[in-house]
């Protein structure tokens, strides 16, 4: 479709993001659950905690176990021998969070309490 072929489009839009030194508190149950989930991958893999748009409140938390990207855009935290990464772009939103783990059938799993959030949704997976 040729509608984008003309002039008048900008270069990619960028927004400025404040980068702060990330501090995250992990409860003992959260540390145990991460270690258990990582298993033997702990030496080569990392946990990335991030925020993306969506959820009821504007942003959703995401936790992924991935091979260490060795990327300077991330801040590295040592959590009981495991490496947790937070991308600089998410640092302002996620610094100060407390990660807990609840071993329950309903609504269990990792829970994040975020002091930066003005609000969070009922299921606790998103914040704004």
């Amino acid at each position: 479709m040729g509608i984008l072929g003309g002039e008048g489009f900008s270069l990619p839009v960028v927004t400025s993001t404040e980068v702060v030194d990330v501090q995250i508190e992990f409860t003992e149950p959260a540390k145990r659950a991460m270690k258990s989930t990582m298993g033997e991958d702990g030496a080569t893999h990392v946990v990335i905690i991030s925020a993306e748009s969506g959820g009821c409140s504007g942003y959703m938390y995401d936790m992924q176990i991935v091979e260490d990207p060795n990327d300077d855009s991330f801040q590295r935290l040592d959590v009981g021998g495991l490496t947790v990464l937070v991308h600089n772009k998410d640092s302002e939103m996620l610094s100060g969070i407390r990660v807990d783990y609840k071993d329950t059938l309903m609504g269990g799993g990792f829970q994040i309490d975020n002091p930066n959030a003005d609000r969070s949704c009922g299921c606790g997976q998103s914040f704004g």
Partner: peptide
């Protein structure tokens, strides 16, 4: 602001 760290999405002003 909501683009995940592992997605490459470019936004342009037209």
């Amino acid at each position: 602001r909501g683009i995940p760290w592992n997605e490459e999405i470019i936004v342009m002003n037209g």
